[in-house]
Amino acid sequence: MKITMTVNGKAVSGDVEGRTLLSGFLREHLSLTGTHVGCDTAQCGACLVHVNGEAVKSCNMLAAEADGADVGTIEGQANADGSLNAIQQAFQDHHGLQCGFCTPGMVMSAAALLKENPRPTEAEIRKYLEGNLCRCTGYHNIVKAIMAASGQDVSSIAAE
């Protein structure tokens, strides 16, 4: 079936099967490989994208369900001039990523969080990231980066 949607502000369309997942559509049809697939039970969150402004696990949504939707992926997060946006920059500044595999989902999740809660507490951030697994960082610098991205002073948090 033919589907059309807006991805990172651009109109796109494609011919998909009923069983095509949104993650598969992004990765294989659109070559937007920044969206990663790390599990098959909707726990890891590496595939997290925005659908109509809301955080969604793209490996757990049929592409057909996103027909007509406005989809945002990691590839569309940087500023118009190509520089890192505030969340991305905070992740780099505070070493909030190591292998980088969970990172697109983390950044997209953080963006969704800050949209609904512009100054989250540490506990709120940790709770919100319930659906995003990271195996590298022990979460320390991810939480710190999100606090920093929301304009909070993180200088008192232990270590770099």
Partner: peptide, 9 residues
Amino acid sequence: DVRFLTGAG
């Protein structure tokens, strides 16, 4: 980080 943060890995 720049490539990982922008989906360019």
